[in-house]
Design a binder for these strands. Structure first.
Lengths: 210, 210
DNA sequence: GTCTATAACGAGATAGAC
DNA sequence: GTCTATCTCGTTATAGAC
């Protein structure tokens, strides 16, 4: 690669390369912002923080995401898509219902291992300060999770591998809130032990392995 | 009462009256700030918000609480004291362990009815952005709750009214995280139904009334 | 697409009068 | 104790050059 300062070379020699770079920068912004929101909250990070980490300017950020609300919307949208893909992957694995629930809880544990809060849980805490489109996306994310869980729970009950009182929908809500709470409380203590303990107990109540 | 603008009269005619007013203003600041933190988060409210609501100036706020960190510390300290008093009151009621757990969950429900998050849960979400003294207070608050719960759980197990696998300490942690999560997730939806459903399921697993 | 420069505003905080 | 006035800094956001 020729030694040429980024400020003096074009970096986009063809239209296709320009598209690629736009997408790359956009992704990098989303990656950094996502982590900052999960660690510090939507009200706890700034364009300046992101620009500093990526060594670009705040103005460049505003080119990709005109307002912070736009950025937040893009963040939760992408997060929800990735989560939906993860749920589809669990389904594709073809495991039984209890294994699916374990895999689901592992998604949360992976977040905690990076010392983050669930993006949606963090936004739920800040809900009252969020622009309306983000609020809607938070609700949609929670609903999608609970719908998926309800389906898994019903199939497990039908197969006799899961046992729970009340509706599958209510039970799904309890799982989401239980795991979100386990993340929330575990993070200040550091490590995943507290989360694992709470998650195990939560799922054990459904499989009867208590 | 003589019609005299607050700006022209002394309002503190005696030293005792001065003390009373200092305490009153301080309480009013704490009350308003506490609600704002529980609704919007520690990073989601400002001295200006509090001053505006109380119709005093920001400078007056700084007299009572020089820095925002000081205010935050006072907030969680008072909150923890009030919570400890509420737990003592539950103990004083002399109910059995299951009734104590119900009363404990009701403390959370009361918070949600005011459309707030638990102060400690909110601060847990913002943990990475908080000054160190507040972080310590958050941990202390969680620990105190879990110690109290562990004691109730053990007495219930001894009396045969509560049944749970694993240690009382771990179970106490699960209850705290379960209720905090139920608050967190319920608030965006409005109403207490979601919380009540999750709380009932959580406690039903301990009393065997599932 | 990214930059420099700057606008416009709000934040936390302090000084000094009353 | 509370005020007015001010400071300094950080924030989101925009304009215009390259």
């Amino acid at each position: 690669m020729p030694l040429m300062p980024a400020s003096t070379r074009t970096r986009t020699d063809t239209p296709a390369a320009a598209d690629r770079q736009r997408a790359d920068t956009r992704s990098a912004i989303l990656d950094t912002s996502e982590r900052l929101v999960q660690v510090r909250g939507f009200n706890g990070f700034s364009y300046g923080d992101v620009a500093g980490e990526l060594a670009i300017t705040k103005a460049a950020l505003h080119y990709h995401f005109p307002s912070k609300a736009d950025l937040g919307e893009a963040l939760i949208t992408r997060y929800a898509e990735r989560f939906a893909a993860a749920l589809a992957a669990i389904d594709a694995d073809g495991g039984a219902a209890p294994a699916k629930l374990d895999a689901y809880a592992d998604l949360y544990a992976a977040v905690l291992r990076e010392e983050r809060m669930c993006l949606c849980g963090m936004l739920a805490a800040e809900y009252q300060t969020l622009p309306d489109p983000i609020r809607v996306a938070v609700i949609d994310f929670l609903d999608a999770n609970e719908v998926w869980l309800a389906r898994v729970l019903e199939s497990g009950r039908d197969a006799g591998t899961l046992h729970f009182a009340g509706s599958a929908a209510d039970t799904g809500q309890s799982i989401v809130s239980g795991l979100e709470g386990a993340l929330l409380v575990a993070r200040p203590y550091g490590g995943v032990e507290r989360f694992e303990t709470a998650a195990r107990r939560l799922l054990a109540g459904l499989t009867g392995t208590a």
